[in-house]
Design a protein around this nucleic acid. Structure first.
Length: 193
DNA sequence: CAAGAGATCATCT
DNA sequence: GATGATCTCTTGA
């Protein structure tokens, strides 16, 4: 079943950990794609210098200030979209970045979109994942209770995981070292070890 | 293989 | 006008 609003209202760290082993579902005219989440990162609030919202409330970060359980999608480096799920209370800006999933359904469609045949290269990174799942800024603000984009709990226990510092946030001062990246142990579908 | 550069644009200064 | 929660390709050993 679909994860509830209350699930996303938990602390960002808890959401990031518990999302591991859940299933990301994306419906689209071209077909449905599903992936098992194997890597996430937590961006925990306005004081977290790696979190976009630490720069203040702007048009771009507005969604993070809204209620939990919505998608925060932004465009970066002139090429890639990043998919985040908004967490915690309304007016408290925080989110979980989905960094990698293991392809489960719609693999052919993913291969086409990614122009790659290698299973491990389809969604092993936040930019790749968005390409494979056709996620772009038009989905910014999408309610995860709807049918376009949501996360499903198939009743499996959270897999064993480990944590590391987050990727690509060298500018974040003392926050760059925080172990807020979570990876399923032993998965070959993570972005990197 | 590992390391480095380049691609390209929305957002904020 | 600078820069980024990235990816891919090229280079060189």
């Amino acid at each position: 079943m679909k994860l509830s609003q209350t699930f996303y209202e938990q602390t960002t760290i808890d959401v990031a950990k518990q999302l591991l082993g859940k299933y990301l579902v994306r419906t689209h005219p071209e077909g449905e794609t599903i992936g098992r989440i194997v890597e996430t990162e937590a961006y925990v609030g306005p004081h977290d210098l790696a979190c976009h919202a630490s720069k203040g409330r702007t048009a771009r970060t507005e969604v993070m200030f809204g209620p939990a359980g919505r998608a925060y999608v932004y465009f970066i480096y002139g090429f890639y979209n990043m998919l985040n799920l908004v967490t915690e209370a309304k007016d408290y800006p925080a989110a979980v970045l989905i960094r990698a999933v293991e392809p489960v359904l719609g693999v052919e469609l993913m291969k086409e979109r990614r122009k790659s045949d290698e299973l491990r290269n389809l969604a092993s990174g936040p930019g790749k994942l968005c390409q494979a799942f056709a996620v772009d800024r038009t989905l910014n603000g999408t309610d995860l209770k709807g049918n376009t984009l949501y996360v499903e709990d198939r009743g499996e226990p959270t897999p064993r995981f480990r944590s590391t510092p987050r990727i690509g946030v060298d500018y974040a001062g003392k926050w760059k070292a925080k172990p807020y990246r979570f990876l399923v142990r032993g998965s070959e579908f993570v972005s990197k070890l």
